[in-house]
Simulated assay, not measured.
Amino acid sequence: MFNRIVAATDIVTSGDAPVISAARLARQQDARLYLLHVMESASTENRRLIRHFDTGAEMITDAGYEQAIRQRLEKTYEKELTDIPHETRVAIGYPWEEILRWAREIDTDLVVLGPHSTRAEEKGVVRVAGRVGSTVENVVTRETCPVMVINRTLRTDQLRFQRVLVAVDFSRSCECAVSFAAALAKHFSSRLMVFHMIPVPPFPKYTRDDYTADVAHSRKRLESFYETYLDGIDHQYLIRAGAMPHLEILACAGDSAADLIVMGSHTKEKPGKWYPGSAVERVAYRADCPAMVVTDPGALTHWDLTVTADDGEGKDRLIHVFSGT
């Protein structure tokens, strides 16, 4: 399924969950792992002015220091990297730019990141609840391939992705996510759960009968939109009512013991959109399992996949509620 995996970390002296998990996934998939560490400087005048990874003292980096970091990374992750084809790179600049640069250079098919910098306090960065951080934001909004956000280290059995939840809202990006999730489920022999949330108007305007009608209407639309991608895949449709999509997605993932959440980001559907989307950010920030974000139809080409031709106005992508009246 995956052949070239990029994992980025800002930690040098101790294990980082995204790198360890990416290494275990690479071993399982017989993939090549590309481990990246970016030396980020707070100086706008000299980007080579950084803090030593061990002492914290300010210094000007050089080839010798970069080699020392590379060797330290190899030692830190020695156990996980044993017998895995891999390459370690140390770069200077903005992390998201260097991640994108290397991902495109090697034509990777998966980028693995943490939801926020583990060195945020040291860098003077203020973490905002529900925000995945600028590095993930910038990679997701610009990268074509899937981006997997990992909060905690995953065991090898958790990386077999036996229960995959894909959250949909009938948008084009979610259709891409379903196509990708179906290929992933087929590869791992997984059960695929297609989730949709009905946004519920306040009671008493919205009755139980309205909800029942909307569930039936939504199920028919889910089948109409996605059944073509799910042929031969063990799957089910899950529908919930709620007001905040990320809470319902997380609750459904927990209730269904999902090993992976797949989501489509709307970043490339409208020009000028510079953030992944609130549901994507909040799910990735809080999820116990990995969250994989698909932003672009181009992500599907690695697996010889595509999405069906969009018939424009004939394909209604709006979310409808209160259909019982």
Rank of each mutant, 00 (worst) to 15 (best):
T13G: 01
Q67I: 11
M244S: 11
V132L: 03
V215N: 10
A216P: 02
S189M: 14
M263T: 06
E105H: 12
P204H: 05
R72F: 00
D259A: 02
C252S: 04
I233C: 04
G272L: 08
D10R: 11
V139E: 08
V280M: 04
A120L: 09
A31Y: 02
T267C: 15
L35F: 03
G264E: 01
F322D: 12
M59Q: 10
E45F: 12
D83M: 09
E137Y: 01
T267E: 10
V321I: 14
M39W: 02
A177L: 10
L110F: 07
G314P: 01
R51Y: 13
T156V: 13
V6P: 00
S256R: 05
R282L: 05
F203Y: 15
V283A: 08
P271T: 06
V307W: 04
P85Q: 12
L230G: 02
T76N: 07
R219G: 06
W102V: 10
T267W: 00
I249C: 05
L110M: 07
G64Y: 12
C174V: 07
V283L: 08
Y211N: 07
H302K: 09
L165E: 04
E223F: 06
L33Q: 01
G64T: 13
L154R: 06
Y237V: 08
P290D: 14
Q28V: 08
I84E: 11
E74N: 15
L165G: 07
R282D: 01
S323V: 11
T301A: 15
H302Q: 08
A63M: 10
E58A: 11
H246N: 09
I99T: 04
T301H: 14
A257W: 10
A243V: 13
F161Y: 09
A23P: 02
G133F: 05
S171K: 08
E97D: 15
L154T: 00
A279K: 12
A258F: 07
S43C: 09
R142I: 02
T44E: 14
A63L: 14
G114D: 07
T228L: 09
E313R: 04
E58C: 11
M59S: 10
V38N: 02
I233P: 03
V19L: 08
A309Q: 13
L159H: 01
S265E: 00
P201T: 00
S218N: 05
Q67T: 08
G272C: 02
G130K: 04
V90N: 03
Y65Q: 12
Y94N: 09
E143L: 13
D304V: 06
N46G: 00
T141A: 07
A7F: 04
D310Q: 11
V147Y: 05
R155E: 15
A181T: 08
P95W: 05
I11F: 14
